[in-house]
Simulated assay, not measured.
Amino acid sequence: MTDIVLSNLLSPAVLFFALGLVAALFKSDLRFPSGLGEALSIYLLLAIGLKGGLALSHYTLDQLSAVLLATLSLGIIIPIATYLICAAFKVDRHNAIGLAATYGSVSIVTYGAALNYLHHEHVYYEPYMNAMVVLLESPAILVSLFMLRWMEHKQNNTATYQTPMGITASSMRPFWPDPAVIKESLLGKSVLLMMGGLAIGWLGGERFYPVIEPLFIHLYDSVLILFMLNMGLLAGERLPELRAFGYKLPLFGIIFPLLYGPVGVVLGKWAGLSTGGMMLMGVLAASASYIAAPAALRSSVPEANPSVYLGLALGITFPLNLIIGLPLYYYLAVMLS
C-alpha cells in the first residue's frame, strides 16, 4: 500500500498540482491567463468525450446495461445522502444543496488522473468507463435541484397574493426545476462538450481514430499536467476561505470521498467490472465537480456560498483523492477482485 501511495505522490500530475498549490500558498505571482485555462478545460472535456464515444462504438447496450444502472444509481444516491448528512450537521438548506450537487457530480480531472494512475500501474480497465463520466455529470445536479424545489414546495405549499379585486388568493408553487435550470444543466459547457464528443466518437468509431489520435490521445497527458498546475493555483487560493465555516465543512471534504469511493467500488464489483473498472467507479463516486455543478448552482441556487462547495471540492477533496483516494480505491478493488 505504501508503494502505491508513493507512486501516486511522485506522478507528474500530482507533482504539478503540488507546484501550483505551493505557488498559491506562498503568494507567488504565477498566474494562468484566463483564456489558456479555458482552452485547457475545453480540450480535456472534449478529449474525455471522444475517448468515451470511441469506446462505446465497440459495445452494445446489452453489454453496458449493468454499468449504466450502477452509474445512474450513484447520481441519485450520493446527492440525497450528502444532503441528509449536511442537514444532520445543521448546514443550511442552500449550502447543503450546493454540496449535494457538487459531490453527486464528478471531477473530470480527478478521473483523468485515475486513468494515468492505472496506465502507470499497467492495469486494464473497460474503455467504456470514459462514457460513464458523461452520464454522471448531470443527474446529481437535477436531483439536487429537484430536492430543493420539493422542500420549498413542502414548506410553502401555497403562496398568497392580492388579486386586482383586493381578494386574497393562493396558488401552488411549482416544485420542479424550471426549463432554464434544466437547460443550464444539460447544455452547459462541460456536459455539451463531453456529450458532443461522445456522440461524434460513437458515430465515427474507428474511422475517426486517425484524425483524433494525434491531438486527443498522444497529447492528453501533457495537457493534463498543465491543467493540474492551474488547479493547484486555484485550490491554494480557495483554502483560506474555509476557515470562516469552522471544522465541520472541511471535515465533509474528507468524509464524503472516503465514504462514497468504497460504495462506487462495490457497485463496480456488482456490475461485473475489472479491477481497473472498479477503481474508476470508486473515483466517479468519490470525486466532486468544480465545473458543471458550480455553473448550474450560480444561476439556480444563488443563496449557496461558492466558497463552500468550490472551496471543499478544490481545496480538500481534490488533493485528498489524488494523494490518498486513488491508491485506496485501487487497493479496495484489488481486495474485491
Rank of each mutant, 00 (worst) to 15 (best):
residue 88 A to H: 13
residue 98 G to T: 08
residue 192 L to C: 14
residue 90 K to E: 14
residue 172 M to T: 10
residue 268 G to C: 04
residue 313 A to F: 12
residue 209 Y to R: 13
residue 219 L to N: 00
residue 300 S to E: 08
residue 237 E to C: 01
residue 118 L to H: 06
residue 253 G to H: 09
residue 264 G to L: 03
residue 233 L to K: 00
residue 264 G to D: 10
residue 150 W to D: 09
residue 95 N to S: 14
residue 234 L to S: 15
residue 226 L to H: 05
residue 209 Y to D: 02
residue 44 L to G: 11
residue 88 A to D: 10
residue 224 L to M: 11
residue 168 T to R: 09
residue 268 G to E: 03
residue 123 V to Q: 07
residue 206 E to H: 14
residue 184 E to G: 12
residue 245 F to D: 04
residue 93 R to L: 12
residue 59 Y to K: 15
residue 105 S to R: 09
residue 82 T to V: 15
residue 14 V to F: 10
residue 233 L to V: 12
residue 152 E to K: 09
residue 285 A to I: 00
residue 95 N to P: 07
residue 331 Y to C: 04
residue 156 N to I: 04
residue 281 M to H: 01
residue 186 L to I: 15
residue 187 L to V: 14
residue 41 S to T: 15
residue 147 M to R: 13
residue 181 V to Q: 11
residue 1 M to P: 11
residue 266 V to R: 03
residue 35 G to I: 06
residue 271 A to I: 03
residue 1 M to F: 08
residue 288 A to E: 05
residue 150 W to E: 06
residue 312 L to D: 08
residue 59 Y to S: 13
residue 214 P to L: 04
residue 129 M to Q: 05
residue 120 H to G: 12
residue 41 S to K: 01
residue 200 I to C: 06
residue 291 I to Y: 06
residue 235 A to M: 03
residue 104 G to Y: 10
residue 122 H to G: 10
residue 110 T to C: 10
residue 31 R to V: 09
residue 116 N to F: 06
residue 213 E to L: 01
residue 2 T to C: 02
residue 239 L to H: 05
residue 5 V to K: 00
residue 304 A to W: 04
residue 96 A to P: 08
residue 163 T to C: 02
residue 105 S to H: 06
residue 55 A to I: 14
residue 54 L to G: 11
residue 44 L to Y: 10
residue 65 S to K: 14
residue 43 Y to V: 07
residue 298 R to H: 13
residue 40 L to M: 15
residue 239 L to N: 05
residue 168 T to P: 07
residue 141 I to Q: 12
residue 111 Y to D: 02
residue 28 S to L: 03
residue 51 K to T: 07
residue 123 V to K: 00
residue 288 A to V: 02
residue 25 L to W: 08
residue 39 A to G: 10
